[in-house]
């Protein structure tokens, strides 16, 4: 199991990049932190989830 945005969920077996696409995130509008550290955009393709990971996906909307 992993925790993504505060919700416990089955550990996704695909890469971060595949998971984010599947969930409908726009890559240009998000920041992803895994276990307290930023996941660089260049690493999305090569980063995988591991049991116990705590992931925060922050999605930005326009306006300011």
């Amino acid at each position: 199991m992993v925790i993504i945005n505060g919700r416990e969920t089955t550990t996704p077996q695909n890469s971060m990049s595949e998971y984010l696409s599947e969930q409908g995130y726009f890559f240009s509008r998000i920041a992803v932190e895994k276990n307290g550290e930023i996941v660089k955009k260049s690493q999305y393709d090569t980063v995988y989830f591991q049991d116990g990971d705590i992931v925060e996906i922050v999605s930005f909307v326009g306006g300011g």
């Binding site: 726009f26 240009s28 509008r29 998000i30 920041a31 932190e33 550290e37 930023i38 660089k40 955009k41 922050v58 999605s59 930005f60 909307v61 326009g62 306006g63 300011g64």
Partner: peptide, 29 residues
């Protein structure tokens, strides 16, 4: 104001200056 610009700033700061405090905003329209 722009969502991509917000994400770019946040990603860059968290990567280059992980110990600085960063206060961002999303959703107030």
């Amino acid at each position: 104001d722009d969502a991509s610009a917000k994400a770019l700033l946040v990603n860059t700061i968290l990567e280059k200056f992980p110990f600085k405090k960063l206060i961002a905003a999303s959703g107030m329209a």
